[in-house]
């Protein structure tokens, strides 16, 4: 590990130890923050309980559905928009302001559209993630070096050869970044929806625990969720770095 990595680890461990000590000596109100050891206990209890396991499972399914849909639709829309230059230019200012809009206000509309089931939440996660995929696809396509395009023309590549040998490798880093954002945004969208409006899933379970003053369960679920999302994101980042290292090595 690098020096920065060790310092980071020491900082995190130190902060946790400090929090633990502060909580145990009553410096922080027990009603506000519980010691980290209790949080971990709470996380363990949450995994052990069937009910919360079902909530976690439901959330994961929704996130995966929203991820798959946003990847497919976002990539397809990006490819089409790349062709339609004028349309894309007109859309640009709207895309740039898209994330200023709180998407989940459309939840009631989705309930009317899809009924009271998992799909309204998937739709919120999807709306949150899909634009990230579109923007990154457009970015990747726009940055294919001109020389590659000309070389392909000289070599008389067919359309499928062009897609496979030129577009895919050249735009791969941007596709990957799009996927990374799609994962993070699907989680954020689905869980925000659960937290505010829905009656199931891990986001709802956290809100429920807060409302019933069950601090141990609440902190346990938050820790669990952060570990889950954090490890998914870290894995993706590591994979990405490996991908870049290989490209740089060529």
């Amino acid at each position: 590990m690098t020096r920065a990595g060790w310092i980071r680890l020491a900082l995190i461990v130190g902060a946790l130890a400090l929090l633990e000590a502060a909580c145990r000596h009553g410096l922080v109100s027990r009603h506000a923050v519980i010691p980290p050891s209790r949080m971990i206990e709470g996380a363990w209890n949450a995994i052990a309980a069937d009910e919360t396991r079902a909530d976690i499972w439901l959330t994961l399914q929704n996130v995966v559905l929203s991820l798959i849909l946003s990847m497919i639709v976002g990539t397809a829309a990006g490819l089409m928009l790349h062709k339609a230059t004028r349309f894309r230019r007109a859309l640009d200012p709207l895309l740039a302001s898209y994330y200023a809009v709180p998407t989940f206000v459309f939840y009631p509309l989705f309930i009317v559209l899809f009924g009271l089931n998992r799909w309204p939440l998937v739709a919120i996660g999807f709306l949150f993630a899909v634009v990230a995929v579109i923007i990154n696809t457009l970015d990747g396509l726009a940055r294919i070096p001109r020389a590659f395009v000309r070389t392909a023309a000289v070599m008389r590549l067919t359309r499928s050869q062009y897609a496979l040998h030129i577009v895919l490798p050249a735009a791969a880093p941007w596709f990957f970044t799009g996927a990374k954002f799609a994962v993070a945004y699907s989680f954020i969208g689905v869980i925000a929806g659960e937290f505010v409006v829905s009656g199931a899933g891990i986001g709802h379970a956290i809100a429920f625990a807060y409302n019933s003053f069950d601090n141990r369960m609440m902190y346990g679920l938050i820790v669990l969720l952060f570990v889950l999302v954090g490890s998914v994101n870290t894995l993706l980042s590591l994979w990405e770095r490996k991908l870049y290292a290989r490209r740089a090595g060529r």
């Binding site: 993070a184 989680f187 954020i188 869980i191 925000a192 937290f195 505010v196 986001g203 956290i206 809100a207 625990a209 807060y210 609440m218 679920l221 938050i222 969720l225 952060f226 999302v229 954090g230 994101n233």
Partner: peptide, 8 residues
């Protein structure tokens, strides 16, 4: 990370 869960 879904920061909304920090709201409580």
């Amino acid at each position: 990370i879904p920061k909304i869960t920090l709201y409580p």
